[in-house]
Nucleic acid binder design. Structure first.
Lengths: 232, 232
DNA sequence: ACGAACTTGTGCACCCATTCACAAGGTAAA
DNA sequence: TTTACCTTGTGAATGGGTGCACAAGTTCGT
């Protein structure tokens, strides 16, 4: 199955992990990597790696493995990371500031080009090199910088309003850190990350294991990644 | 069903959402909530709510719904949130500081009681009310505050060492924000959250949807900016 | 007391993802 | 060339999760 078969959601969620794993091979190094090695680098098992990659095409060589550079190129192409998707961060509180500064975003093709906040003391200034605008400037900021993704890091009570404004400005990809359910049109892609929820899941297992006196009752815990809900 | 049947992982991951949804009902308000309402509050569908709750027990009343207070109590009990699980944050960079300050953690029973960093300028001082210690103090900090969860917000190259030290100190629940695969013993519960990975998943859909408009499926339109820059 | 209108709890069918197991294809050395 | 040994790619089995559809149980109005 070549170029354009449907790629399962679970596979899409793992592609970035493979790409990340390939970072250990220098670009242009002509290295080959087996599904077993890549599995270790990405924290999954080898069968999954092979099946996932088979959805993209037949890029490996039997008896040898995958060419690291070529694989990197193909996964990048599938993910569209050759593109750069500018981000606007909404809400410059603790979390917003940390996200706006997060070097890992720009490195992966998601530069933070602007921030939005309602605090008059922040509007018009630069925080850590990021220009902060008021909510009313959102549409023009989006147009000017060709913003593709909005991050919501506002207090929960402002989150829905912020989402509405992002949608009005034409944004179709939103990542929210607000601990509430947001309503957006069907054509908007929303991923919600609730850090407290993640901790509570950890807490559940903690609770269980301490109850029993040590052994992890819930079968064996393992690998996780997570998060978010995918719409279309 | 009954009290302690195995609760599916997918259900455990949603219980915190239900709990969060129940926040709209004042404590002691004697309100009842239907699966439909709770579904809307949690962002899932009603059938899932009913099935999930049935794993905890039969807490609803047919024709009526669920008693909000009772349901809150039972979900809390299942999750073990009646307990308080102290947290130590490792790495007080941008993200670490934001997490250490995040009010949502303490509200949900996960107070940040200490922080660890290697920077001599930070060790021994308080940052936003959180005492910062050096790595060597980890074991004593864990013992003294009865720390149950460790958060890794260090640079990627320090993450594995930090994980090892947390494990040595007796921590069995770890949440990592470092973009690498961490190796921990089987009895340690590890949740990895990679924010850049999340964005790349959004990027995949963006890429796909924008391709449909443009006539080129060959993927030539993209700038061939490189692809895998920074090493680990 | 009775029927209409609700809402839960759950059996069941379906779907997606994971994992196994192996044939197909490739390398290397004698 | 032949043999021994790798590793991919993929049918097929397995397992978990989702959602439908409906019987069972409750409330309310008449």
């Amino acid at each position: 199955m070549n170029s354009i078969g449907r790629i399962p959601d679970a596979t899409v969620a793992r592609l970035p992990l493979y790409l990340r794993g390939l970072d250990v091979f220098p670009v242009g190094g002509a290295a080959t990597v087996s599904s077993e090695e890549l599995a270790a680098l990405a924290g999954v098992n080898a069968a999954k790696v092979r099946k996932d990659l088979s959805y993209l095409g037949t890029y490996g060589t039997r008896g040898v493995g995958y060419d690291a550079d070529f694989l990197r190129f193909e996964i990048s192409r599938a993910l569209g990371v050759a593109n750069t998707w500018p981000i606007v961060v909404c809400g410059m509180g603790n979390l917003g500031r940390a996200l706006a500064n997060h070097s890992g975003f720009a490195e992966r093709g998601f530069p933070v080009v602007a921030a939005i906040d309602t605090d008059p003391d922040k509007i018009g200034v630069e925080i850590d090199g990021i220009a902060v605008y008021g909510p009313s400037a959102l549409a023009s900021v989006v147009a000017k910088h060709d913003v593709a993704v909005g991050i919501i890091a506002t207090p929960p009570e402002a989150a829905q309003g912020t989402a509405d404004r992002l949608v009005d400005a034409g944004i179709t990809s939103i990542m929210s850190f607000a601990p509430i359910v947001l309503t957006v049109p069907d054509d908007v892609d929303l991923r919600a990350v609730d850090l407290a929820t993640e901790l509570q899941i950890l807490g559940f297992h903690l609770h269980r294991s301490r109850l029993v006196g040590g052994a992890d009752v819930s079968g064996d815990r393992e690998r996780d990644l997570l998060v978010g809900e995918g719409p279309v």
